[in-house]
Design a protein around this nucleic acid. Structure first.
Lengths: 204, 204
DNA sequence: TAAAATTTTAACTGATTGATTAAATATCAA
DNA sequence: TTGATATTTAATCAATCAGTTAAAATTTTA
């Protein structure tokens, strides 16, 4: 079997275990068993547990961000852009199962990997956050939305869409939501978030 | 030294280590050193690492929620209530240092402790979330705000205030914010969040 | 004051764990 | 076809770690 396949098999198995248990809680023997290989191979291919962990996280976060940025709307109309962003961002989140658990581990590690990836991601020559901030500034300039702090708005936008998924067990239990990844719930949620944010910023 | 003092000393030391490293990453010897005691005492007082962990997190989350709920505004005017909630909630978050890291660990554990504490916290006979939802429904009924989904709004409200603190390293880096717990930043943020949310729901 | 109970300590135990190793097997290159 | 290289394996190692123990010290109780 080609080397490449073994590495991918390891990364997939490691992702499953690391997502669930974190680096400290995961066991190399368990990862090996999940991958169907001998434990020594983990060290042969990745040298150490920590290097394996980094490799796994790099791949997951890069895949996610790549997917997010490739689906960012290119519409000039800001209202439509905002709506499309909310829909595609939450769709990306639900499609990348377990991503939110990765995010939790990454936050505990200080977020360096995520920061690096966010900075490197480019949209029309801008970093992704700058691209969106530029859109917001443009909409202000055109009088489409009222004068808001663009950074603050983006902070709110990202928080509002992502955080419910991160805190999913809490919210599902407290609000008795059967399944927050259910399409009907997400559609309604996206619409409510859009209505709230758009109403909150549109020029009257 | 009284037994009570030793237990408190242990819990304080354990909190420091557990918040930083999680249960799997923390070492009992390190906790003992931090508390200035013999490691065997940890087991004498708390039986096991996991029981110690539970005791520590119970105390942290209960202290936080108690503080949050005791400072929830009692104003009848919904606009004022909303503003006060935003301010006091974010103030509670910044006052309880390390809380956000605790939240990360708790999410990874499924959030059971947080759920339990949220359900048990009572405000005027309601659970805390229900109390706020009732306020929102009342404001709708009075025509103060437009017909929104109360649960969804509360989801957004909690997400918008809390999440930036959870993802603080990411946001400080990406947006080049020197210190998100700086009073000036928080004041501005609270005002922007309030303006956005209020504009988003007020009846025109 | 002495016995009982509780607390504390240094030393230790057994299990676990990431990493390593020697050897076998498979693949590749000359 | 043979030697070199890469891959794989079972067994092993040394360090780590939560938890335990016997004994000493301290506190409490009668």
């Amino acid at each position: 079997m080609a080397k490449k396949n073994i590495e991918e098999q390891i990364i997939k198995a490691a992702a499953t275990i690391f997502v669930k248990k974190g680096m400290d809680g995961a066991r190399m023997q368990e990862i090996a068993a999940e991958a169907g290989i001998n434990q020594a191979l983990l060290h042969y291919y990745f040298r150490s547990k920590e290097k394996l962990f980094d490799a796994v996280f790099s791949e997951i976060i890069n895949n996610f961000l790549k997917s997010v940025f490739s689906s960012i709307s290119e519409k000039d109309n800001f209202k439509e852009f905002l709506y499309d962003f909310i829909v595609s961002y939450s769709q990306n989140i639900t499609e990348h199962a377990e991503l939110t658990k990765f995010i939790l581990w990454e936050f505990q590690r200080g977020g360096k990997l995520m920061i690096k990836s966010l900075r490197e991601a480019q949209l029309n020559g801008d970093s992704a956050p700058d691209f969106i901030i530029r859109k917001i500034e443009q909409a202000k300039k055109e009088g489409v939305i009222r004068p808001i702090d663009a950074q603050n708005f983006l902070l709110t936008l990202l928080s509002t869409v992502l955080y419910p998924f991160i805190a999913r067990p809490i919210f599902e239990n407290i609000f008795q939501i059967p399944d927050m990844t259910d399409a009907a719930f997400i559609d309604k949620r996206n619409q409510e978030v859009f209505d709230l944010l758009w109403s909150g910023i549109k020029q009257n």
